[in-house]
Amino acid sequence: MLSRRRLGVTLGIVLSLILSTVALGALGDRLLSRGTNGSDVREMQAKLIQLGYPVGPLDGKFGSRTENAVRKFQQDHGLKVDGIAGPKTIGELSHLTGSSTNASGVALGNKSADVNLLAHIVNGEARGEPFIGQVAVAAVVLNRLKNPAFPKTIAGVIYQPGAFSSVSDGQVNKQPTASSIRAAREALSGVDPSHGALYFFNPAKTSNRYIWSRPEITKIGQQIFTS
């Protein structure tokens, strides 16, 4: 009887300790740097991944890959590059992953579904291509929306059977990089280095006769863009 009570007390202490750690560990309460662990690190890692900065496993441990991701994020966002997530870095991370609002401040959600899906296809199809070529790949998807021969939604175009090899082989499911996300956003803002192309292909990897028969518009990196 006594031991059960002692067990209860011990459990209570352990639980309250855990709860206090959780309460203390809110993102932004402390500086996060190499070697720090905890739920706040995990939260930061999730935000980094969401914005296209891979951190390796989402484990709440601030290791070298997380540090690299923080540095890259800082560089891309005009912050001091020191690999330490202080108030400015965390503030920017939270701001960019925050919700959009309407005029009276009602949260409308992240509103990044289009950017996110476009970034996935850019990542799957044009990883390793020059940035301008990545924008062009995203622009091809958007050009298809405007063409009567293609579906009228981004998801419809991207998941059209056989339309993109990265969908067939699952590459499209990989987490997009910051560069792919930026390329997607630029294409959505209206930039089109493909000059209205509807198809693109890597001549070294494609034997599809239909694609080869299309008139070429431009070549960017390894990819040919056709109408």
């Binding site: 579906p151 059209q160 056989g162 993109f164 239909y210």
Partner: peptide, 15 residues
Amino acid sequence: ANHDLAQLPADQTGL
């Protein structure tokens, strides 16, 4: 109909 067509297994029906 096109939405449903896209769910079926196909090689090049994308084009």
